[in-house]
């Protein structure tokens, strides 16, 4: 299983793997905001938590259909399904590889982009905390969506339609915890909910996604 993790990360880093794309998208999406809403610092600072979360979520979405589609098309998925690895483990490793190549880089890049959006100083700590707690759920939910649509040709748009509503709870709690934290309010409850959703998706969705893969392969 570690072999699979290493392979997926290596594939993401190599040419055409799309590793930089998500980050670049995150950067561009955030940079566009001041052009749209105007350069006024106070307003930018107010909306920065939400903007950063939404941009990260969309950047995450970009690379989702690579998780299984490429393996499905070149036959690797069939071979993985007949290998000694349990499909649940394959799904979990792929989701983890996706997080390591998207969610984690986004978390590291987010504070830098927070500067551009005039994010209040008190928010940086919570920005990193909410991203660390929340982005794994984006990868695991996305992997579930990718598993559902693996057999669909040109399934990218459908995948977005299915996955985006599932992102609503993480987005709401993540952005809310960040906003409250930045304003110095108590944010334990949304923070715990955010972590709870992440843990729940990590624990349960690989099983559901593995079943979806099996259904799609048969």
């Amino acid at each position: 299983m570690i072999a699979l993790l290493v392979r997926d990360i290596r594939l993401a880093m190599r040419a055409g793997g799309g590793f930089g794309l998500g980050l670049a998208f995150f950067l561009i999406a955030v940079v566009l905001v001041p052009f749209g809403v105007g350069p006024e610092g106070g307003l930018l600072g107010t909306i920065a938590p939400g903007i950063l979360w939404i941009a990260a979520l969309l950047a995450c979405l970009l690379s989702l259909d690579r998780i299984f589609t490429l393996d499905y098309e070149d036959g690797s998925l069939d071979l993985l399904a007949t290998s000694p690895l349990p499909m649940e483990g394959v799904v979990a490793m792929k989701a983890l590889a996706h997080w390591l190549t998207t969610g984690l880089p986004l978390t590291i890049a987010a504070p830098v982009l927070g500067l551009l959006l005039n994010l209040p100083e008190s928010a940086y700590y919570w920005l990193v905390v909410t991203f660390l707690l929340g982005t794994p759920a984006l990868s695991f939910i996305g992997t579930f969506g990718a598993a559902l649509t693996v057999g669909v040709k040109r399934g990218g748009l459908l995948l977005s339609l299915l996955v985006l509503p599932l992102y609503i709870p993480s987005l709401t709690f993540g952005a809310e915890a960040l906003r409250r934290g930045a304003e110095g309010m108590a944010n334990t409850v949304p923070l715990l909910m955010l972590a709870g959703i992440t843990l729940g998706t990590i624990a349960l969705l690989p099983f559901v996604a593995a079943q979806a893969i099996r259904i799609n392969l048969r």
Binding site: R7, R10, L11, R14, A15, D74, G75, S76, D78, T82
Partner: peptide
Amino acid sequence: LAYGAHADGLKSTL
């Protein structure tokens, strides 16, 4: 059983 399909399951960048 080892299954060998039409597709070889190779990753082109590896």
